[in-house]
Design a protein around this nucleic acid. Structure first.
Length: 403
DNA sequence: TACTTGATAAACAAAT
DNA sequence: GATTTGTTTATCAAGT
């Protein structure tokens, strides 16, 4: 996905107002989208272009993702009751960031938001479907949702889809099926209501998803900034209502702890923001063309190497893990078949049954805790590593820009 | 140019 | 039988 928009030209045409919105938001983002040093923490060695301040070029302004933050902020602070699937925004750090239910968090209903900002809500979300799904799932109390509720969540938070052709649902299902980050779990026994299974996030990939999410959301590298010791200053722009709250709340191991935007490296380089390939973190194996984060553990294009053992996915793990090797190696390590070319060996390569079997295993809560810890550790390590790496790149691109 | 990634469309099967 | 869900394949655009 390209930066900011990431949609095909025809899709650009679908949202003709985007450019104006972006232009309009530039002003907004200047004020609300940048990270004050104080918030990021002066001690952070990972300051990025956003933090570098207003010295950025016009081009940088156009390409920076601050407006995404705005969008995200707005979308995630939309909150509101009645999220399908039991997702309860108000109970989520994403929605009730500061634990203040009374806080005005609904920009769409707030007159303080410009029409362009509201329009932005109706523009195509700058998140891949994987991330949307991830957010939806993680927003649910049980961390698992049926497809239908994933639809609902997306619809509710990204009104763009309400008017979009229904193909997006197909894409959602497609992503769920193909993206290893998501796993299917059976509905709890006795609960026969509803079709299909529940979907949850594979803890193993949670850090990857979080990182990808952060990369899209928070280009400013406030990586590993410690949570602010003091409450947000009154001068903080609206955006920080989200961010600060995020960093204030936060159990370290909380899944999709967007309440910790600082935990994961974020590159300020727009060119990197959507470049999952730049991630050095353990990554999802490629499962398909549309598997987001799909090359996370590829080790390189076309590398059919054994996947690293899981750092802790026992929640979904079983003896099937053995077949999982085969499964994932076959599907992931196999890498993606050459584009536009049917894979002749697909019958021997694919192992949907194995995946199904694995997916049907339900997570064990006690193990899930371990997974969360493991994920947290991974996330931490990965964040440090990638941030340093990306900082290098950032410096490099800076050099190039000067030339 | 080749490759990766994400989006989209479509077809199909199974479940409800 | 219609709809929903899940899987798979193919194609395209954009970025590297």
């Amino acid at each position: 996905m390209g930066p900011i928009i990431g949609m095909s030209p025809d899709k650009k045409a679908e949202t003709p107002g985007m450019q104006e919105e972006r232009a309009g938001l530039r002003g907004v983002c200047r004020g609300a989208g940048t990270l004050p040093e104080a918030e990021c923490g002066a001690a952070s060695p990972l300051a990025t272009s956003l933090d570098r301040g207003s010295g950025g070029s016009e081009d940088e302004e156009l390409t920076n993702l601050n407006w995404l933050h705005e969008n995200l902020l707005q979308n995630f602070t939309l909150g509101g009751p009645g999220v399908a699937g039991g997702a309860q925004p108000s109970a989520s750090p994403l929605f009730d960031i500061e634990g203040d239910p009374g806080a005005p968090q609904n920009p769409s209903s707030s007159s303080s938001y410009s029409s362009s900002q509201r329009d932005l809500l109706k523009s195509k979300p700058p998140f891949s479907f994987s991330l949307l799904i991830y957010m939806a799932i993680e927003q649910s109390p049980s961390k698992r949702l049926p497809v239908k509720d994933i639809y609902s969540w997306i619809l509710q938070h990204f009104p763009y889809f309400s008017s979009a052709p229904t193909g997006w649902k197909n894409s959602v299902r497609h992503n769920l099926s193909l993206n290893k980050c998501f796993r299917k779990v059976e509905r709890s026994l006795g609960k026969v209501n509803g079709k299909g299974s529940l979907w949850c996030v594979d803890p193993e990939y949670r850090p990857n998803l979080i990182q990808a999410l952060k990369k899209q959301h928070f280009p400013a590298a406030h990586t590993f900034c410690t949570p602010p010791a003091s409450p947000p200053s009154a001068s903080s722009p609206p955006r920080h209502h989200f961010l600060q709250g995020c960093s204030l709340k936060g159990e370290p191991d909380s899944p999709l702890d967007l309440s910790q935007p600082d935990l994961v490296l974020v590159s300020s380089d727009p060119k990197q923001d959507h470049n999952y390939s730049s991630m050095t973190l353990q990554r999802c194996s490629s499962r398909s063309s549309s598997s987001s984060l799909s090359s996370l553990d590829e080790g390189g294009p076309g590398h059919a190497r054994p996947r690293p053992r899981r750092a802790g996915s026992e929640g979904f793990h079983s003896e099937e893990e053995d077949s999982d090797l085969g499964d994932r190696d076959e599907r992931g390590g196999h890498s993606r078949p050459a584009p536009h070319r049917p894979s002749p060996s697909s019958s021997s390569v694919k192992c949907p049954a194995g995946k199904r079997a694995r997916r049907e295993l339900t997570a064990k809560p006690e193990l899930d805790e371990e997974l969360k810890e493991a994920a947290g550790s991974l996330l931490h390590l990965a964040g440090i590593r990638t941030s340093m790496e990306l900082n290098k790149r950032s410096a490099k691109s800076k050099k190039l820009n000067r030339k």
